[in-house]
Design a protein around this nucleic acid. Structure first.
Lengths: 244, 244
DNA sequence: CGATGTGAAGACTTTCACAGCA
DNA sequence: TGCTGTGAAAGTCTTCACATCG
């Protein structure tokens, strides 16, 4: 926010990535903008305003502009943003301008869903292996990938320079999966198991718990219901405001 | 924050839920505390301090205390929190003290993974149906639930008073799924499809995009790599600090 | 004129630090 | 004494509003 002196020189043709630290909240939105922009490209839309993009993403237009400005972005006043260039910039910022090798631990339903998930390969993630300890699951082809025994993990990680691992095991196996991933050399982990896994300093873990998401929803749903009930109880007037 | 006068009366036996609005950030953490606390109960741990819970959840202890205090919580100074009571309180706050009926639209890999996901039934979510439009998938039993045709959705939603719907379809089918859910009477939607779905005012949607999570990870991974590269380039000293 | 880029204000969240109670 | 509960400070994120520029 203060280091704004050498902007001009950077804009022209910066071979550097990540010129400044982008806020987490923005990083979490960039993939959404990216996806929407790619859809626009497919519809042959060449230019887009912050208002339009904001409407598509269901956010505030000022937020879009600020988010894009963190990348040292390149809109044209009075016109908007060049969709293709924006796509290029966001991809670069997110590191999607080269392929990422990914391994998945756990060949259950979730592991299968993930390995067959189109969104991954589309965005430059290449699934180099699906692993399990259950012999019944080994060698079965899952989403185009043969399931291997977990013992083969280190070998694959080293050979294909995998840096991202996905944990799709039951909770009970997650810590072991994490340990093995770390020992094999993976440095980032996406954890779908409903536990907190411990990793050494320097390894980053992101957790997505499907049931947590449902619980957040039911909290809001419950509030909605009690608000409605209160409205009925109090009486028909507007003294309590039942909004989303 | 100011309405703290009638606390005592409430604490004893409050039949009221949600005495005050809980910040979103806190709501997102309560399910995690809940899960950890349940694990503690299973290990026969009856009491826990904010420090201990914070360590388990990998967050700051003050945050834990503040989060719990929003529920008008009930710790004992010098001692800590009663685990069982905390579990009771969080469940109640999240609306997990009664069962929620849920329907899943989309019987692909993800729909199957979700319908078989143990975490749901454990936490009081009852999956009342899995729906698809693909005739090949209809009538197949998936995670203990028979897959039905999407046309049967309104009937099931009405009959089982379903208020939460999960979209596990491909992107192209998601808007239709959302429309049908809304028309059937569902008021909250958890959307796993990688699109923004439009819904009428008053319906709440929460989106979880698996590939967005990967993209956030690769952003951080990429920063890590370039930071390391810069370190090497500059030279071996500590002028640039490469942390996680 | 119309849309970007951005200071500044405001809202929300986290963290500190300590009073207060068991 | 030890740990909770919480004002207040610090930090982060969102939104406003408008100067600025194509």
């Amino acid at each position: 926010m203060k280091a704004r002196t050498s902007d001009l020189s950077c804009k022209a043709m910066s071979p550097h990535r990540s010129r400044r630290r982008i806020p987490d909240a923005t990083v979490a939105r960039l993939p959404i903008y990216l996806q929407l922009l790619i859809e626009q490209l497919e519809n042959e839309v060449a230019n887009i305003s912050s208002d339009e993009l904001a409407a598509l993403a269901a956010v505030n237009a000022a937020k879009v502009r600020k988010d894009l400005s963190y990348m040292g972005s390149y809109g044209t006043r009075g016109v908007g943003y060049d969709v293709e260039y924006l796509v290029y910039q966001i991809r670069r910022e997110l590191g999607l301008d080269h392929e990422w090798s990914v391994v998945i631990v756990g060949a259950g339903h979730l592991g299968q869903a993930l390995s067959g998930y189109g969104g991954f390969s589309e965005r430059g993630y290449s699934i180099e292996g699906v692993f399990d300890i259950d012999d019944k699951k080994i060698d079965v082809a899952v989403g185009g990938v043969r399931v291997r025994h977990l013992d083969e993990l280190p070998q694959v990680v080293a050979q294909r320079s995998v840096s991202i691992g996905v944990i799709a095991t039951p909770a009970s196996a997650a810590q072991d999966a994490a340990d093995r991933l770390v020992k094999s050399g993976v440095t980032s982990i996406l954890n779908f198991a409903p536990v907190v896994v411990n990793v050494p300093f320097g390894i980053s873990v992101r957790r997505v718990d499907l049931s947590v998401e449902l619980q957040i929803i039911s909290y809001h749903e419950q509030r909605r219901l009690t608000a409605a009930a209160q409205l009925r109880a109090v009486n028909g007037d507007g003294s309590i405001n039942a909004t989303a």
